[in-house]
């Protein structure tokens, strides 16, 4: 994973990985690694989303 990965980049990568896996064209040796990568990306995206949600709630809640 690149250091400054954006949410959008991560999502695009995830989409590409899922498509490739579903097509069955991925070498089986890569499969486990890619799967691990995908899980990492999903975790990253969930965290990003959670952070964004939390930030929004904080902004909207009256002090």
């Amino acid at each position: 994973m690149e250091e400054k990965l954006t949410y959008e980049q991560a999502m695009a990568r995830l989409e590409a990985l899922a498509t490739k896996m579903e097509q069955g064209t991925m070498p089986i040796d890569e499969l486990a690694d890619r799967l691990r990568e995908a899980q990492g990306l999903i975790k990253f995206c969930r965290e990003q989303l959670y952070a964004a949600d939390k930030a929004v709630q904080q902004i909207l809640s009256p002090e």
């Binding site: 999502m11 995830l14 990985l17 899922a18 896996m21 999903i42």
Partner: peptide
């Protein structure tokens, strides 16, 4: 993300 997760799990 959930959908992607499901798709990835499926494969």
């Amino acid at each position: 993300i959930d959908m992607l997760d499901l798709r990835l799990k499926g494969v």
